[in-house]
Design a protein around this nucleic acid. Structure first.
Lengths: 134, 134
DNA sequence: CCCCTATTCGAGAATGGTTTTCATTTTCAA
DNA sequence: TTGAAAATGAAAACCATTCTCGAATAGGGG
């Protein structure tokens, strides 16, 4: 891991939530001015493949990235996306029920189709507080 | 709803699974040759907003569309995406457990943040049978 | 320290799905 | 029929992402 890659990973580790490639680029550029946008994209792809970060699509045309952070998905959470204003809120309750449910699905998939699940992504859509009022 | 829009919706209704905008365009074009790709994109956006179709992103750079088809999500299913070959397989088991789990999450979100959930999206990632062997 | 080779880097160009523009056509109510 | 509003298609624009390629860098022997 080179210094450029470490800088990108550090920014992701130290920032909570949903950064786009360009946002990451600007944050890294602040203290590592020689960084190029190409390297950001390249590094993000590597980190996703390694399994250190997640890549999300919230429907606004640009990918978002988050550190996995924590062994065995301890910081695992879901996203609620407001279809009114596009705001994204983390949601991490009901983990026990979720794990039980997901385990069942994984077993079913493995048994019926011989699929090996490594990851999942659950997103909720709806309207947030202020958008419901308006 | 105009004839062009009906043609697009009909194609989606009569085809199972995961069509891209261009695939839809080609299918509609076969019996409605005057259709333009612009109208396909425009109509798809309208149908998504109305709530008649879903829009998915499987990570291959193009959006996929499916009819909602059926009141109160009766044909609801999830997607398993093979990270090896990109294949997408529908999965619709464990609906009872899922509904119970999702209901809890919706209640939690409504209580804690005053969010109103209208939809959700659950995707699984992993390797399919043939990719695991290879 | 210094080569040497493979890897990584950044700038700019290219890519490609999607959106915008805009003039034309169609719709539909009066 | 008529006229305003909505819808249409072709082409251009858009823009996040990827590709290209020559330069810079890393890092393991000598």
């Amino acid at each position: 891991m080179t210094s450029a890659r470490k800088a990108i990973f550090d920014v992701l580790s130290q920032t909570r939530g949903h950064l786009s490639a360009e946002e990451i680029y600007m944050k890294v550029h602040a203290f590592y001015p020689s960084i190029g946008l190409t390297s950001v994209y390249r590094t993000l792809q590597i980190l996703v493949n390694i399994g250190l970060i997640f890549k999300f699509d919230f429907g606004d045309g640009r990918a978002r990235f988050e550190v996995v952070e924590g062994p065995s998905g301890q910081d695992h959470h879901h996203h609620f996306i407001c279809t009114g204003c596009g705001r994204v809120i983390d949601y991490s309750d009901f983990t026990a029920e979720e794990l039980a449910f997901l385990k069942k699905v994984e077993e079913g998939l493995a048994r019926k189709h011989a699929f090996k699940i490594t990851n999942h992504n659950l997103q909720f859509y709806g309207t947030c507080n202020s958008c419901t009022e308006a």
